[in-house]
């Protein structure tokens, strides 16, 4: 099986995507007007802490002013990583092919 591992990965991704779609449909059906599903787990933990009356004692020195700008920096983070991975795998592959 030359591509056995790849097949496993694709199969698992399809299963998770299917579970997500089913789960999402169930959640959206029960959601109130102003509620939003699929928030971050980090935020949920912060909510639990704030419910106990805790106030964070230090604020981030800079916060992305909007969701768009936040996603810009997340995309940038992924892009920086992806280009490095792609570059070196391409480099190694090309070098091997030239031998």
């Amino acid at each position: 099986m030359k591509y056995g591992l790849e097949l496993v990965v694709v199969a698992v991704l399809i299963i998770f995507a299917a579970i997500f779609l089913v789960q999402n449909a169930a959640i959206q059906a029960n959601l109130g007007e102003d509620e939003e599903a699929w928030g971050g787990a980090d935020g949920s933990a912060a909510e639990i802490i704030e419910e106990s009356g805790y106030e964070p004692w230090f604020d981030p020195i800079w916060e992305p002013p909007s969701g768009e700008i936040e996603s810009l920096f997340f995309s940038l983070q992924a892009a920086i990583g992806a280009i490095i991975i792609g570059y070196f795998f391409g480099y190694y592959r090309g070098k091997k092919a030239a031998e």
Partner: peptide
């Protein structure tokens, strides 16, 4: 290192 960058984003 790049892998940590991509996956954690």
């Amino acid at each position: 290192g790049a892998f940590v960058f991509v996956l954690s984003s």
